[in-house]
Write a protein that binds this DNA or RNA. Sequence first.
DNA 1: CTGAAAGCGCTTACAG
DNA 2: CTGAAAGCGCTTACAG
Lengths: 357, 357
Amino acid sequence: MPKSVTLKDVAAKVGVTSAAASMALSGHERISEKTRAAVKQAAEDLGYVPSSAGRALRSQRADAVALVVPNSSAHVFGHLYFMHVLTGMSTAANAHDAQVIVSTNADTSNGGVAYERVMRSRTADGAIVTSAAIDDHHVEGLVASGLPVVLIGNYPHLADAVSVGIDDVAATEQLVEHLVTEHGRRRLLHVSGTLDHQTGIDRRDGFLRAAEMHGLTDVAVIEGDLAEESGAAAVEQVLRERTGDERFPFDGIVFANDDMAVGGLAVLRRAGVSVPGDVAVVGFDDFGFARVTTPGITTIRVPAEEMGRIATERLFDLVDQRPGGRAHTELGVEVVLRGSCGCDPERAAAPGPTHSH
Amino acid sequence: MPKSVTLKDVAAKVGVTSAAASMALSGHERISEKTRAAVKQAAEDLGYVPSSAGRALRSQRADAVALVVPNSSAHVFGHLYFMHVLTGMSTAANAHDAQVIVSTNADTSNGGVAYERVMRSRTADGAIVTSAAIDDHHVEGLVASGLPVVLIGNYPHLADAVSVGIDDVAATEQLVEHLVTEHGRRRLLHVSGTLDHQTGIDRRDGFLRAAEMHGLTDVAVIEGDLAEESGAAAVEQVLRERTGDERFPFDGIVFANDDMAVGGLAVLRRAGVSVPGDVAVVGFDDFGFARVTTPGITTIRVPAEEMGRIATERLFDLVDQRPGGRAHTELGVEVVLRGSCGCDPERAAAPGPTHSH
DNA sequence: CTGAAAGCGCTTACAG
DNA sequence: CTGAAAGCGCTTACAG
């Protein structure tokens, strides 16, 4: 492993002090044009890159931001959602010449959680926290500590925290509205996310509120956990509990995310229940799966990449002590219509892949 | 923002020097049991966490590893592949108390690429590089520089580099073998990845070699770029060029990855070509999509998470100067049989979701 | 055995 | 105007 080139090496080559070399590289005016050029040339020749540790120690700034993945969402690490958030973070971080650190929350050993250590050790100047459970006190502690943190999602109990999110209630209402108004569905099932996360609560509340507004009486909620299997399990439960001759007791299912919709769709298919013929299905997220199933899943497009990007911009505002705007930034969402609700007839009517000739 | 607690604060509280406090915290024997306990208590009370910059500067070690995403694969950043690799990296990094840095390769401004800067600045102790193009000279330079680097994939022209990968040639041969032997397909099309990446070349070569071994004469290769759209484009091209009465000129398509298979599948469906009836389809990767399409896509499961984990272990070997084993570690893969090749009749025969009653 | 300096690499505030 | 010290936080090697 090659010894790394320091500022001293560069300075020595030119015959100035390292202090002068530092100023030369940063374009300080007190260094003559000639010396400045010589130092820059020497730095280039030697392949000099400033030591991040030296610089961080001196400037009290790591030039890095961390993405925190709390324990409570460990099972969804590996999900495209994080990749989208990470992509957005990278875009913003690159613009600020900062590194992106991914902090999965392994070490709960020393009484503290990993991401708190990341912050306190100043490895990162600030953190983005996403998918935290409502009762995750570590998040509250972090926010309360005054360290720069931006939350992705809605945290009503942390009203002062800077956060970026969407309106899950309104978005879910839109989906229900669509099923009722456009497709005449009135017997609706909601398969919710975990109710210890605000998104789980909000999407369920949106469902219930819209159902009430439309005077729907045949509605039910089954609690899921956002995993594909839990969507499958919910549908299996309905199939098991239906009375004898019933085809399917609901004519629409609102899954709290696409993964569960995928799982539910597979079970419906195997049971010979037609989608959208017998049951209309909608999901939430649009991170990829919803586009490739047959039929495609009507869903809400969550702008995860933009959330990551904006959250990171807000985080730099905090780190640089720029007077922030609103504590919460709300991004718009979009309903994406596909075959599973009965829309997009071209696609829905196309021969299925198992069609024989 | 709260002022961070330093070792000096802890030492002051106990009435010892910061050097003594440092030794106490690291359990050095020369510090009395009593002082050790007092220092630990004080550290806990004050919420002391060592500064990573201070420690890194002193120990010449960042305790961080970087995942590098080269420019050439910028379009696939945001792909589940990276998330799997990242998950594996995190597992290994956590075990070594190290941070994971994600370095997308934005800054090509200063003549150097971002990940070279990450390495030279010692922000990370080493890097994992994946999806690098064959002619990416920056990778060669990095490897040649002697900095700790582990490559994911196969790099025949960098035979001395430490790397972790799978046998793409053999895996693709297995797929062809399956189509020929189990499903009697003999007119095969390969939609390749970009041929400036070794995986693109290897999967194509595996296809061609297996075709030759089985004496297939009706084979063709179309170069794609791993994106869903390019799989669609390849199939469209075939449809466009077929002669009048022909249904589909091939009875099997080997896509170099699942994404392209998904794109191809959609076009086939719209054209009324049955899968697997008229054409058997296979993909490569199994990062998610292949499982949720209808029919499911027969594919090769690439152990991306394990690749990330093992590459990171190898990287720590390098960083810690442990005598490494082989330069290249090859992981096994698994053929996953689903409906698109004609296997899994239970699923393939199940009523499609657009089936009407 | 223990106290305290030295130095990792950097940049700014100070002394001359 | 310019040279060089001081100090960010840490830990180890040295002096006493």
